[in-house]
Design a protein around this nucleic acid. Structure first.
Lengths: 189, 189
DNA sequence: ACCTGAACACCGTTCAAGT
DNA sequence: ACCTGAACACCGTTCAAGT
């Protein structure tokens, strides 16, 4: 309920920004300028306020980073949802890493300056994979198979994004090789 | 050649620290207090000088982080050297991650505040794995097989260190399962 | 030559004062 | 209620001055 301002007698100023706008600005800054470029001042400028105003919506920069991580995991989960094909799921997983490399790195390897996202969201993002792994490896080995496949995919994309694959060799070919061999290895015998 | 100080007429003060001591202090601080706790001031205190003195041996904090990453990769390469058994190599790789989790994370996922280590060192750490992969998968698939195995191992340990494996299930069991299936999958057909 | 205190720029965060 | 300038603590880094 909007009330008259006691000093001016006019209505209070309408909000000049929102939590969603702040998170969106933070995500953009992260991709454009890296974690070091994601300052409270830069976020504030981008949403059109001064840095202190951000603290009306977010308690700290750390918490903002966590919200960025959660938004990233949510988006990733949506991309993976409605796929029961492990090969296609892995392809989308990798594509998302290419689309948002900085956020992807932050989510896959927190601790190095970035906080962990909520565990429920991590679980949500991996749920489709576990389903597919169960179909492939059987219920008994579903969890271990999902972990094997997830570890490989996550490690592969992380190495790729970090320049971990030196020169030489076709990276796409290594991806296809890995998918093929892993699917074969995890299939129920 | 030590010369007489022109002002005091005495010998110059002997060095109170060294680059090696600075890197060692930085590595310890990284494990104890995380990346945020690895400040120039904290490093200086630990080696017994004031922060500005560090700049006589290291040009910047970023460069110091890079030296820490390189020392970590070198140590890891030494641990893996002289193993042509992929299972034993993977076991040592994982054990090193448990031994120095913060440095391991920094090396496996740089960019998130940490700079990349030299490419030669990355290559050195992966050389024994490529050798073992060649013996297993054959020369033709040696590189792709090494990448598959390395991506899995690196992804597995990273997830483990970052709490990426939610609750439930035996992580050691998932490791053994992954090793066994991967070795089988990568073996020449 | 190495070391230091002082100083500067920058960043996260708080707070009193504006509207 | 939201917003702001001013201020504070902290950190990386530079520099002139000591020895």
């Amino acid at each position: 309920m909007a009330t008259v301002n006691s000093y001016t007698g006019r209505m209070p100023t309408p909000d000049r920004t929102s939590l969603d706008a702040i998170i969106a600005a933070a995500r953009d800054l992260l991709e454009e300028n890296g974690l070091a470029g994601l300052t409270m001042s830069a976020v504030a400028t981008r949403v059109g306020v001064r840095a202190p105003s951000l603290y009306k919506r977010v308690p700290s920069r750390d918490r903002l980073l966590q919200l960025v991580a959660e938004a990233t995991l949510l988006e990733l989960a949506q991309r993976l949802d409605a796929t029961d094909d492990l090969v296609e799921g892995a392809r989308r997983f990798r594509a998302y890493g290419h689309e948002r490399p900085a956020a992807f790195r932050m989510v896959m390897a927190p601790g190095a300056g970035a906080p962990l996202a909520g565990l429920e969201l991590r679980a949500a993002a991996s749920a489709p994979i576990i389903r597919a792994a169960a179909a492939l490896a059987g219920e008994k080995h579903a969890l271990a198979a999902a972990r094997t496949f997830t570890a490989w995919a996550s490690g592969f994309v992380s190495m790729e994004l970090n320049g971990g694959f030196g020169l030489g060799g076709d990276v796409d070919e290594a991806w296809d090789f890995g998918v093929e061999r892993l699917i074969a290895a995890l299939s129920a015998r």
